[in-house]
Design a protein around this nucleic acid. Structure first.
Lengths: 217, 217
DNA sequence: TTCATAATGAAACAATGTTTCAAGACGTTT
DNA sequence: AAACGTCTTGAAACATTGTTTCATTATGAA
């Protein structure tokens, strides 16, 4: 029997006897685990997310985590997907602007802000914080979804003849890589101050816009 | 006494009694250690570089490594500096071209090749492969030295009025970040095939050149 | 030669991801 | 309702890491 003096989330649904109660329970439990892991990560960084620490926070043995996620990589993947959702939401919050250039600047700003406000998520998603985790199909698709606004706006710009290049994915990747490059060099300590990095970032956004939108420089 | 049946590099200089024999010995030993670590890294990747594995290869106890480098971070730093030397050499091997644009393309190609031929070094230097190691002053300076050709050529282009922007460091950082962004996204699994990545890379180089050299696109 | 000081190196320590396996819970069958 | 087989649990162990300890051993000075 469980020790009922502990508020144990595992025991919470034990009494039920419905057919898929266990599945539901497992699903709820997974969410709790992910939230616990995310909480640890945001407070102390990705390297602080250890199986034992998550288990301790959930007051359960480590085995449960392995039952639910298979391995630490499985948990990492969930954090990755969580980050994708947050990034997608951040992009969604950027007000649409009739001026595509201004909208693109807004999205660029949102990407920068995401890397600053959710640095741990950024490192998990794009910085290889969990070296054991490499994105597979589902994760790559989640990134694609998050970058949807970027793809949409670039596609629009191409349709309107504002961009000479015809492949929107290629353009998105070029923009993404440039911005990621600066953020990653900054997070890796190769660019010293945040001010320098942000200045560089803004210049890069301008350069990209001028390159692709083909205006005067 | 050492077991002379083992060809132990540590015992090699033990007999000497000159004043700085020990210092020399320590210096030689350090080089052997770094080479052993580098060999393991290039064969099996950065994550395979463990203190025990290096010690095993050197047939010495782990303590020696701590005496020489202080910590794993100390050894990581040496590998980082080693990588800087290799990158600098790679840039040095690019034939100087009177046409600055062609020379810049050559340097870009060399940077790509370095990331492919010395992926482990690249990950240590720019990919955060040893998460415990963050570049400090000396390491940052070593990168600066490695990128010297880049800085020189950009400075020249500015002097000749080919580039409107006046701060060479800023331009170098913009170029560097763009190229690094693509390489890092590729190494991180966000860009699937090498072909796609290389195509993107070449496009990026062209875009950068056209942006800064202000020619037609 | 003797003694203090420093280096050595096997073993231990702490933390990690992961697996084991006896004890128990659960649902199904008789 | 009782018994049986299957699945889950969870404490403990395992393997691997970075790092430190400390008795032993050399080393160099007195």
């Amino acid at each position: 029997m469980q020790d009922s003096s502990k508020i144990n989330p595992i025991a919470a649904h034990k009494a039920t006897t419905y057919p898929d109660a266990k599945l539901q329970h497992a699903e709820l439990l997974k969410r709790s685990m992910i939230e616990a892991a995310a909480s640890i990560m945001q407070q102390s960084g990705p390297e602080a997310v250890t199986i034992r620490r998550v288990a301790e926070k959930m007051e359960c043995p480590t085995k449960i985590i392995y039952n639910l996620f298979g391995s630490k990589e499985g948990l990492a993947k969930e954090l990755f997907l969580e980050g994708c959702k947050l990034l997608a939401a951040a992009f969604r919050d950027v007000p649409e602007d009739a001026d595509l250039e201004m909208y693109l600047r807004g999205l660029g700003e949102a990407y920068w802000d995401f890397s600053r406000n959710y640095t741990s998520y950024y490192m998990v998603m794009f910085g290889g914080a969990f070296s054991e985790f490499k994105p597979e199909e589902e994760s790559l698709q989640a990134i694609g979804t998050a970058l949807q606004q970027f793809i949409t706006i670039i596609t629009k710009a191409i349709e309107q003849g504002l961009i000479a290049e015809k492949d929107p994915i290629l353009v998105v990747n070029l923009v993404w890589a440039s911005l990621h490059g600066i953020i990653h060099l900054y997070l890796g300590g190769h660019i010293q101050s945040e001010w320098t990095a942000k200045n560089l970032y803004d210049r890069s956004v301008s350069h990209l816009i001028h390159t692709f939108f083909g205006n005067e420089r």
